[in-house]
């Protein structure tokens, strides 16, 4: 195949990074929530989709993309915290399957509500004017908006890392994920920590949905398929590992993107093939601790 020049491959890999960035954001939130609360959040895709729709709502009211970028994730975080506070919290300590089933049902409810409010058809989401066009990245021209997605993701990850590693609140989260009882006996209201962590995780999912919307539009079902992919990323990276979520997210994005170049119909299968191989060789994923699910 003479069409597969190194530059084309590099461009496609770079496109994969933008796709991977969305996976990374989703999987980071899922991993954070799982690592801290041992909740496998099946509603994560629904919160992602909510980010896109709430972004559309803000955009419709104000016409300002930047305001949508700020407000939609915050609104999704608030809804996530509401769900944690009123529903999920009741199931802590009862094993991993109860919150899993609850969030599974919650996802259906959220999707249905969005269908009722916004309709069942796909809605276009305009790329903001400032981010249309392409930029020369050395190997060719790359869509500016995709660069923006990669940049925002990097910023969010940096902020999250600084929060976890450099602030007292981050120390509470890190310790609470390993031994919740220790933070309780040292005077910390662990319930509040769980609430905040769930809010951060779902807020990042909302941000991912908003960032993905200009690339693919908004549809009530947009969270369903990406939930499965984000799961693969979380499992491949290692449940509960943020570093794993980042590495696996980018890897999966690049694999999908490169597969799409040579065999488009295989792109989705490639994700699951990758997961199968990783799980056979390393059941706990790249950076996961063994036995977390038991």
């Amino acid at each position: 195949m003479s069409g597969l020049t190194p530059d084309l491959l590099a461009m496609q890999a770079f496109t994969g990074l933008a796709l991977g960035a969305v996976y990374v954001l989703l999987a980071t939130g899922m991993s954070l929530i799982f690592g801290m609360l041992t909740v496998v959040n099946f509603a994560h895709g629904a919160f992602y989709m909510l980010g896109a729709y709430l972004g559309l709502a803000v955009l419709g009211l104000t016409g300002n993309f930047w305001l949508a970028l700020l407000l939609a994730p915050l609104a999704v975080a608030a809804l996530g915290m509401l769900a944690e506070r009123t529903l999920i919290r009741r199931l802590y300590g009862r094993g991993i399957d109860y919150p899993l089933l609850l969030t599974f049902g919650l996802a259906y409810i959220i999707v249905e509500l969005v269908r009722i409010v916004f309709g069942t058809q796909d809605l276009p989401f305009d790329t903001p004017d400032a981010l249309t066009g392409a930029a020369d990245i050395g190997i060719g021209f790359f869509p500016l908006y995709r660069l923006f997605v990669i940049g925002v993701t990097a910023l969010v990850l940096l902020a999250l890392w600084l929060f976890l590693e450099r602030t007292p609140y981050g120390l509470i989260v890190r310790v609470g994920a390993r031994d919740p009882e220790i933070v309780r006996i040292l005077g910390i209201d662990i319930a509040r920590v769980w609430l905040v962590v769930f809010g951060i995780g779902t807020g990042i999912a909302g941000l991912a949905g908003l960032l993905a919307a200009p690339l693919q539009g908004a549809s009530p079902e947009m969270g369903n398929s990406i939930l499965a992919e984000a799961f693969v990323v979380t499992v491949v990276g290692g449940m509960g590992s943020l570093l794993g979520a980042v590495a696996a997210g980018l890897l999966v994005g690049v694999v999908v993107s490169l597969t799409a170049l040579v065999a488009p119909e295989m792109a989705q299968v490639a994700i699951f093939a990758l997961m199968a191989v990783v799980l056979l060789l390393r059941p706990q994923g790249f950076f996961g601790r063994a036995g977390l699910m038991s």
């Binding site: 007292p168 120390l171 509470i172 890190r174 310790v175 390993r178 031994d179 009882e181 220790i182 933070v183 006996i185 040292l186 005077g187 910390i188």
Partner: peptide, 26 residues
């Protein structure tokens, strides 16, 4: 104050960080 059985020192953290946890809510 409570010192539980088996110490429950948090893995991965330094001595200073472990002490700092004791101060977080104080």
């Amino acid at each position: 104050g409570y010192v539980p059985e088996e110490r429950r020192i948090v893995p991965g953290l330094t001595v200073r960080e472990n002490l700092r946890i004791g101060l977080l809510a104080s």
